[in-house]
Design a protein around this nucleic acid. Structure first.
Lengths: 339, 339
DNA sequence: AGCGCCCTCCAAAGCGCTTTGGACGAAACT
DNA sequence: AGTTTCGTCCAAAGCGCTTTGGAGGGCGCT
């Protein structure tokens, strides 16, 4: 059932049917009723590609998904995607997932843009001088950034307050008497990891402390790396009395290292982890329950879906900046520093 | 840069340029060179939507992503998506992620089909009488099923041998002297969970044992449910000496329950978990290392991408059936039954 | 009556490609 | 030399929509 046939059956022109269906004013209410009733009855569904060609609007947004996503960002990706999709589904906007090799994402963006496959894209996990920003501006491709970068070109972004979160977590540990605090950070070149380290350092600096370089490690968010880094920390003498972990996966590894060393979490050593809120891995239910800096990445995705719509609706990108605060949720994994 | 303009600059017709670029034989080699050189130089990229409209082929496959995906299938989704994308990216085929409410997925498929947004779809986690199969057949939408169902209509599928995996794991535990074995299964209505229970029961039946209904639980793959089910099991007297876990997330919860009960995994009680292979959560590195039935869901995704291409190329779907064997990888979490 | 105006509706021209059905020479045949 | 074939190329007709620029009729107005 195509428009032409529908129009024929109704004894109307394609123009009128099209307008009736799209809510244009120049069609009488009675006709509109008749048309939409018939469309429903005959199961008419416009061909998306014809609309796209005719209007130039695609009704799709792209997300570049690193093929090794899980290596870098663990299970965050699917939660984030769900969030974006959640919002866009209402508008019948498709989510186009473009797999990329993290090494050269550019050709993919060029392709998405030049061949008009999406109206906008969502960018994740930027580096401070992320080259994608200027490429997309150059290509005239609207986008919303999840995270932050220092590229001066105006752009829409939403980020969580990584610096504040880690400053607060560190401060809290300092309040508890900890002085040797270790940090298992995310991949060092990413802005969020830089911000976290900055928060960490500034909290220490506020008490006149400078971090021991041996107590800072970074890398992908895997349990294995969490374990290895934590193990190395625990071999130091004096060893740290508290550890900050960049993700729940990392935290699992850190936890294991602590246990393996015969230490008790929350007593002999404390830990605070960042939690992106995975429904299948709940920090509160752990034993001991995990103290976390918490921010739902799914919620961020949903909001970014909304922001993409705003950008497409013409809201100036320089007005779209959101910095979300991060909760510090205290559990049993963080306690007073041992004597 | 559009085709028309490119043709004009070359002094050729659109027809010839189009054919040159698409490898048709009725254009001389020298012209083809000239054209593709110019296309590259001028950065010509055909408008995907025009191609789609003209050819009827979309160059995209859809994946219905339950919005509460993570609730049901944990972090599996992103690994699986990456796998599919990995294969399709080579062919410049887009992956369209359609968010759905698990409750009624049908309208989404109707929409994808009727409005020609995708050429084919990938279906996951079916129930035995999955209604999606007949709907898609009815709609004439090609698809590949990840998992199995009993709907008689011919369809392409790829599944892992869940029954065999759990039979083998159970047998192994029986060989080790375990007699009271518990199962923390996935959502009960899904085929894979049914197959797993079947494997579990058949291994027991082979030794003349019938499972205690109190030792079978099912639900989503979350650490919390793993914990709760395991905790309930451990309160029984006599309590089970071994537990099978449906996923790594479940296993984390089970592990925690075991530890909380003051038991030692691999000695007082054994566990074998199913591992879909997440790069960020490695069963081998756990302490004790986890015995698993192992099958990479990412590899399955990649293969399914390939199968989708085959289906689109016209391979009869009734010839596309793949049942993947599952490894049993023994670690320290499974040991002889205690006295 | 005659006028203009608004309300409805329509024909036709795109959007940027692919593809059918030929056209036009040059090479290869009788 | 005349005819056929082949190798190259082209004009134009879609694909299924949206959108521009009118057309036509009913209405209230003078």
């Amino acid at each position: 059932m195509r428009l032409k046939e529908l129009a024929r059956q109704l004894g109307l022109s394609q123009t009128t049917v099209s307008r009736a269906l799209n809510g244009y004013p120049e069609v009488s209410e009675v006709t509109r009723q008749r048309v939409s009733e018939a469309a429903l009855r005959l199961g008419y569904r416009p061909n998306a590609n014809a609309i796209r060609l005719a209007t130039g609007r695609v009704g799709a947004v792209g997300v570049a998904l690193p093929l090794d996503a899980s290596l870098y960002f663990g299970p965050h990706t699917s939660e984030f995607l769900s969030g974006i999709g959640e919002r866009l589904a209402h508008e019948e906007i498709d989510l186009v997932v473009a797999p990329i090799n993290a090494t050269d994402e550019m050709p993919v963006h060029r392709r998405l843009a030049a061949s008009k496959r999406v109206d906008a894209v969502v960018l994740s996990s930027p580096t401070p001088n992320d080259a994608r920003i200027s490429l997309l501006n150059e290509l005239g491709m609207p986008f919303v950034l999840h995270g932050r970068c220092e590229v001066p070109a105006p752009h829409a972004w939403l980020d969580i307050d990584n610096e504040g979160a880690f400053r607060r977590a560190t401060s809290h540990l300092l309040d508890l008497g900890h002085r040797r605090i270790a940090l298992v950070n995310g991949p060092a070149d990413h802005t969020f990891a830089i911000h976290r380290e900055r928060g960490f350092r500034s909290a220490l600096a506020d008490r006149g402390l400078i971090p021991d370089p041996h107590l800072i490690a970074s890398g992908r968010f895997t349990d294995e790396l969490g374990f290895r880094h934590a193990q190395a920390f625990l071999e130091l003498r004096p060893r740290p009395t508290a550890i900050l972990a960049g993700s729940m996966m990392t935290a699992l590894g850190v936890f294991r290292a602590i246990r393996s060393a015969g230490l008790e979490l929350g007593k002999d050593i404390s830990m605070i982890a960042h939690d992106d809120v995975f429904p299948y891995l709940n920090a509160d239910n752990m034993v001991p329950s995990m103290s976390t800096t918490r921010s739902s990445i799914r919620a961020a995705g949903a909001r970014i879906g909304e922001l993409v719509l705003q950008v497409l609706a013409g809201t100036p990108v320089e007005t779209i900046h959101e910095l979300w605060p991060v909760e510090l949720v205290l559990g049993e994994s963080s306690g007073p520093a041992p004597e």
